Simulated scan of single mutants.
Amino acid sequence: MAVTIKDVAKLANVAPSTVSRVIANNPRISEKTKQKVREAMDELGYHPNFIARSLANQSTRVLGLVLPGSASTFSQNPFFPTVLRGLSEGAHEKQYALQMTTGQSEEEIYEGVVQMVQGGRVDGIILLYSKVEDKVMNYLKERKFPFVVVGKPYKFCEEITHVDNDNFRAAREVTDYLLELGHECIGFIGGDLNLVVTVERLLGYEKALRDAGLDLKNEYIIHEEFLREGGREAINELMQLTLPPTALVVADDLMALGVLNTLDEMDISVPADISIISFNNVLLAEMSRPPLTSVDINIFNLGNEAAKSLIQKVENPQDPIKRIIIPHEIVKRASCSKREKNA
């Protein structure tokens, strides 16, 4: 015979309604009572029927995830598996599942989101990006559907809960670091200019150069996709300049790996001939040759906090708008070196 809530309640010496509240992780139930009920559930081998509960509560206990591009981009860039791990742990902690939508075009992604929302498939949505112009974000805001953004919204920043790094400050700091090493010809390799993270990092880079009294050189700024091929194309273009940069700020470790591979093929030494600093501090930054100096943006925490914030919004629609800034740190390795003034 199947174990029921009443059986758990009897063993834990509580009311069946208390067991239901523990399953729903009701904050009004004390941790002591929750522990007692969960021990009874484990002893009896009781597993809640979340599908039945979801139907009764008109809740799916599923969070939708929206990626910025195709599944191939997701699979290639280590940022996404790491942020997904943070999302998964945050969701699992509150017994929510994740559903992902991707598409080969912005229209396909938009249609996927509409189907998730109007089909009642998810309780809320996490956007794993922030764009300057975004049809998806506008749609969710207009429908007043619960959503959280990983990144800084370009519009309505004070009206949208988001989890982000201070990308402007981080880019300014890494550019200052290269300036302190004696570099004045500093290039910037960024991603899509429709992504707010690219805009913020570009502005931080430009601010550091202006504060140092240096002219901005448009030819030193290249934008490509956040992939290894993007780094290859960017560095090929930069090294064809009459006066190539002696240092680079690269907006992503995977792009930086493409830069390193191409420079090696050109027989250009890092950091003897050119210094490189990048972002994300994924494992390949440590394992590259030479190991990359990179900004650790705590990717796991970005995802984890996004999941927790969305669940709070789903379970309490009156939850206030939040701006959560995840700290960053420059991890110095072997890809940057001091440049002599006469070099």
Rank of each mutant, 00 (worst) to 15 (best):
L11F: 00
S20M: 11
S20K: 13
E31Q: 12
K36H: 07
R38S: 08
D42A: 15
F50W: 10
A56V: 03
S59L: 05
V62F: 03
L67C: 09
S75V: 07
N77L: 03
T82V: 12
V83C: 06
V83M: 03
V83F: 00
L84E: 05
G86N: 09
G90L: 14
A91F: 06
K94M: 08
L98Y: 08
S105Q: 02
Y110H: 10
I125Q: 02
Y139W: 00
Y139T: 01
F145M: 09
V148Y: 10
V150W: 02
Y154L: 00
A171R: 03
V174A: 07
V174G: 08
T175D: 14
T175H: 04
D176E: 13
G187W: 01
F188V: 09
F188D: 14
L193E: 10
L195T: 09
R201Y: 00
D211T: 11
D215M: 06
K217S: 02
E219H: 05
E219Q: 11
R228Y: 00
E229G: 05
E229K: 08
A234H: 00
E237D: 06
L238W: 00
M239C: 08
L248M: 00
L248Q: 06
N261S: 11
S269M: 10
D273I: 00
I277A: 08
L284C: 14
L284I: 15
F300Q: 05
V314Q: 06
E315H: 04
D319K: 15
I321N: 14
K322M: 02
N342Y: 09
